[in-house]
Design a protein around this nucleic acid. Structure first.
Lengths: 210, 210
DNA sequence: TGATCTATAACATGATTATGTGGTTGACTA
DNA sequence: TAGTCAACCACATAATCATGTTATAGATCA
């Protein structure tokens, strides 16, 4: 028997979901509330396994509720429920430890599957949500700006600069004269359009050269 | 009619999948291959809408195949197929533009659904895969290490250092004496356990202080 | 009230960095 | 074959940085 708790401000939907879940074998709604005002006390009192959490609710919304719960309880599975796949909310929800993110238009049978999946440690999400997530994911890894086409040797010098090496240390590390290090660095500054070590280091990080 | 192409080294599974898909209304297998050796030519020739791509294949595996395809074609939907949800592969696949990632043990009916979802722009993935993705996602955003409890003023100085300001510039920017800037910076170095500007700047980025 | 912390500031010295100018070698290429 | 470029090296000078020591004023807190 999977113990479910419900947060949804729309009375019709709240009732509908409750009846659907209670009417299904293996599922049970412990309680349902219209917002997250007292979410901590409620979760502590009922100790559900899965929480269906609407995002748009008055007074205290679902994202706030999610944060509150996660401050005191890392185990309960929380499924965010929303009418549309808003980029910002998806990001917020995931960053704050939601276990899944599904659309309200999900058919009832599928909803029950999702609840089961969440309860057993899965992270159910509708395909459109998953698309958002994947896009954000690859955006975070591919935002490598220009290349600045540094030569291999220059990249190596920059790498060592980033690690805090002085010119002298770089010279001995690379078995070249300190003046050669200077030459390389001057070239690096030109290519990166900077004129100090700090800026070069900062740019190296920003543009993921290192 | 959704036009599908298959990459799978196991002959039985390849045959099985072909029959399943061809035997279903609205689906059609254009071709099936045992590895990605000539993937570019094959994709160009058949122009499928969805590709089912096994990850573990001899000679040229699925991740390599994915990369190759994405070099020349950004539109075709690619569903990665695997026997288990290996963290590294999931990351690789997603970073390289896969549209979904599903387990081979997925029941046939669900597999067809996934193909449809992919074709219409969704990103189908099994719940266990989604869990991996979410974990990686929040790991990327929460890995903010220590706080180093820099004071407000120190953070401000560090911020300006990162932007390439010299001590002199920082002093005039903050309306304080250059020696005060020095004091702050010395304190910053202590708190960050570094002993040069570059290291401080690097650490500011790594630990997301700025 | 005394201890602690932050922000401010000064002075001094040696190390490091930024910049300019100049050069050699070897590899690749139009 | 002349031109370009990466990698190497040298010398010089001014600016900047790292470090140490010392000190005052105000805020916070036990």
């Amino acid at each position: 028997m999977i113990k479910v708790m419900l947060y949804e401000d729309n009375p019709q939907l709240r009732e509908g979901l409750t009846m659907l879940i209670n009417g299904s074998d293996g599922f049970e709604v412990l309680a349902a509330f219209k917002n997250c005002e007292n979410v901590i006390e409620e979760v502590e009192a009922y100790r559900p396994e899965v929480i269906l959490m609407d995002i748009d609710m008055p007074v205290v919304n679902g994202i706030e509720g999610l944060k509150k719960i996660r401050e005191v309880n890392a185990d309960v599975k929380i499924l965010m429920l929303t009418v549309f796949d808003d980029n910002k909310n998806v990001f917020q929800a995931i960053s704050n430890g939601a276990n899944g993110y599904i659309l309200k238009k999900t058919p009832p049978a599928r909803l029950l599957e999702y609840i089961s999946e969440a309860q057993t440690g899965g992270a159910p999400m509708t395909a459109s949500i998953a698309t958002q997530v994947l896009k954000m994911f690859s955006a975070m890894n591919n935002e490598k700006g220009e290349d600045y086409n540094l030569s291999d040797r220059e990249k190596q010098v920059l790498q060592l600069l980033v690690e805090g090496y002085s010119y002298k240390m770089i010279a001995s590390e690379m078995y070249i004269a300190i003046d050669t290090v200077r030459s390389h660095i001057k070239k690096i500054y030109e290519k990166l359009h900077v004129n100090s070590k700090s800026e070069a280091v900062a740019k190296a990080f920003k543009d993921k050269i290192v």
